[in-house]
Amino acid sequence: MGLLSFLRRAAAPLARRTSPQAAEDAELFDEAFQRKLEYLAMASKRVFAGVMKAERRTKKTGSGVEFADHRDYAPGDDFRSLDWHAYQRFDRLLVRLFEEEEDLSIYLVVDSSESMGFHHARKLRHAKRLAAALAYVGLANLDRVSIVTADSTLGLRLEPTRNKKRIFRVFEFLRRVEAGGSTDLGSALRSFVAQHKRRGLAVLLSDLYDPAGFERGINVLRFNRFEPFVLHVVDRADATPELRGDVVLYDVETGDEREVTVTPAVLERYRSEYDEYLARIERFCVSHQVSYFRADVDVPFDELVLRVFRRGGFLR
């Protein structure tokens, strides 16, 4: 029995790869989708009228005009940056730091773990469309957009790119993304921050089904001075599984098994536990000033993107 269930589980991702998934991916970014992207790009400019191209503040300190901080003088620093008033008051040589004005780096981190492929990969497809939309808006605003996939490690990577004409590369990249592997966002994002020295906005598109805890991945971004933006991809079908009777439940990613007799009462408890999990994630993000947005797969992506714009945090 165990062998059978193992074979069945092993065959599941294969089945998805050879399934009509490819055909669906071809329709993922069809002409209608692209028209909506153009509309979203225009809408983003109308909402944030007056914002200049590449006129975005980053936390990178440099040669800008707006004071950011002090640091100790080090040999070789430009004398013009020394703060003589501070020297008089504290008897220390301090260099004034200014916020450097440069183009924003937007990193779209797409969770490509097995759980994102659950329920006919509805969450992964939704995440791909959202990523494509956000990438287009970023490219249209002359930002540097990069996309990476993550499960327990970093997967595919789209080099930072600018100009909205590159959007087709984005589409091509996202089409290649498939669900697989287990989730370990902490580990994957540690690799991410190590590979990306240029800080920026890190948009995490994930269902946050991380056995090690969803907080780890977000904290890695926070602690490495990235601006995390959590786009929580949610499928309500996960909350209402069609289960009945004596079953053995196994995790699609880890294979962990658990015997359970599913009754309406058990299902009800599961639903409330699921809701509690979503609420816990939201509480965490809010309490740590992390932009959080819940992206339900049943809500059209364009409507979701507009809501993201209105909430702020993605565009400044």
């Binding site: 029995m1 589980r9 009777g245 053995v248 439940l249 196994y250 995790d251 058990v266 536990e273 999990y277």
Partner: peptide
């Protein structure tokens, strides 16, 4: 032992809490 149907779930950790009470 009762032979049970294997059912895949996206995140078994959620069930752990539910079944702890059971």
């Amino acid at each position: 032992k009762l032979r049970r149907r294997p059912i895949a779930v996206p995140f078994a950790a959620l069930w752990q809490r539910v079944l702890r009470d059971r």
